[in-house]
């Protein structure tokens, strides 16, 4: 059953991709039994290296792919079941998505007005002038202007394109936004601009955000809670502060050690640690499960690791 605490709740979600037949059959477990929840009006950061299944998770939640197993609830309603027109409408009205690639994510044959206004049109708004007015209003909100409405995507820079993508997602007034690495393809100088914009819109419209990123440095600043993914599994979920203070899973530690530090004194002494599953865990006799080691801090660990993690938290507090 869904918990009333969460706006979006994912329970035991699996997404397997199969290719080939018979002997050549190959199953990629892109997402393998993950569970987490996103609370209303919070930003949940989903972090992990490329290819660990973050995009697949986001796309499965919004039903661009059908899940292999597991359930997803949004606002108490199950959205992982059989697809009906009603469910599709419910999903598309409530969750919008921002994509990773600033070039690929805008149709090169449509003007900005058509791109941003499409969500309104689909929802039955026919009045051209009204669509225009709302599109321009939205464009201004993301730092563009009326003149840009008649342009084609190739005339814009990467940061501008991402802001257009944000406008397209937000104009339909969703409750939640899944942002799939929205700044990974941008220059560092532009990244802050886009993230701040997203944050402002979140405050203004009370959005809930599932923010996907491949390193912790980006999510660190504005995620309330963070989930760390490794090879299709969620290995640690915690409040942002807890995760920085007490990173428990060795993979989280590895990710944290990869963040450059702004202070030159500590940056000089920063040690990178790497994560080698076979060395860091002994799962020959015990299987790992997701355990809540302290309030709202979940780690994937075996019973003996759990003891070790508990001890570490006790020392640190």
């Amino acid at each position: 059953m869904p918990s009333s605490e969460y706006l979006l709740e994912v329970q035991g979600l699996r997404q397997y991709f199969a290719s080939g037949r018979g002997k050549n059959r190959l199953v990629v477990k892109a997402v393998d039994d993950i569970s987490f929840g996103v609370k209303p009006a919070e930003t949940f950061g989903l972090v992990g290296e490329s290819g660990c299944g973050k995009t697949t998770t986001g796309r499965t939640i919004i039903r661009l792919c059908d899940p292999t197993a597991g359930r997803v609830f949004f606002d108490g309603r199950e959205v992982s079941g059989r697809m009906t027109n009603d469910l599709r409408k419910y999903l598309t009205d409530n969750i919008a998505m921002i994509f990773q690639d600033p070039i690929e994510s805008l149709n090169p044959r449509m003007t900005i007005e058509e791109i941003v206004g499409e969500g309104l049109k689909v929802r039955g708004l026919k009045d051209k002038a009204e669509i225009r007015r709302r599109v321009v209003e939205m464009l201004v909100k993301v730092g563009l202007n009326e003149e840009h409405a008649t342009r084609y995507p190739h005339e814009f820079s990467g940061g501008q394109r991402q802001r257009i993508g944000i406008a397209r997602a937000v104009i339909v007034k969703p409750k939640m936004i899944i942002a799939d690495e929205p700044v990974s393809a941008l220059d560092v100088s532009i990244q802050a601009q886009v993230i701040n914009l997203l944050n402002d819109l979140k405050e203004e419209l009370g959005l809930t955000i599932l923010f996907i990123a491949h390193d912790l440095s980006v999510v660190k600043y504005f995620s309330n809670r963070i989930g760390v993914m490794y090879y299709g599994r969620l290995v640690e979920v915690a409040k942002g502060d807890d995760l920085y203070k007490n990173p428990l899973h060795p993979y989280t530690r590895a990710l944290l050690s990869a963040i450059p530090q702004p202070n030159p004194l500590t940056e000089r002494t920063r040690q990178r640690v790497d994560y080698v599953p076979d060395r860091d865990h002994d799962y020959s006799t015990e299987q790992p499960t997701m355990v809540e080691v302290e309030p709202e801090h979940f780690v994937l660990c075996s019973p003996s690791e759990l003891l070790e993690y508990r001890r570490r938290i006790a020392q640190n507090v």
Binding site: L64, R88, S105, E118, G165
Partner: peptide
């Protein structure tokens, strides 16, 4: 499979529009 087609799908654009417009 392009992202702009996926984006339109997440906005609820019907199949016919996806085929002929996108």
């Amino acid at each position: 499979g392009r992202e702009y087609v996926l984006a339109a799908r997440t906005l609820g654009v019907p199949d016919r529009t996806l085929i002929f417009r996108h």
